[in-house]
């Protein structure tokens, strides 16, 4: 399913905050609405999964229980 430009913008904001290159994403934002649907889906999926994967790196790892 294709994502809206607003959704893509939200992913871009998150990715830039997490250290991604804003210059590259300015290109994708500029052209997004003109892309064919299959590329929109692919791009949206790419950004969504990157956000999720990067967010996971911020999650604290489960602590190992120590023997008492």
């Amino acid at each position: 399913m294709t994502k809206t430009l607003a959704e893509i913008q939200k992913y871009v904001d998150q990715l830039v905050k997490m250290g991604e290159d804003p210059e590259e994403f300015s290109f994708w934002l500029a052209v997004y609405e003109t892309l064919p649907d299959d590329i929109k889906v692919e791009l949206g999926s790419n950004m969504e999964s990157e956000v999720k994967e990067l967010e996971q790196t911020f999650q604290p790892k489960p602590t190992v229980a120590t023997a008492t």
Partner: peptide, 8 residues
């Protein structure tokens, strides 16, 4: 994180 970004 660097690996994830590079791959994407």
């Amino acid at each position: 994180r660097a690996n994830i970004m590079a791959e994407k």
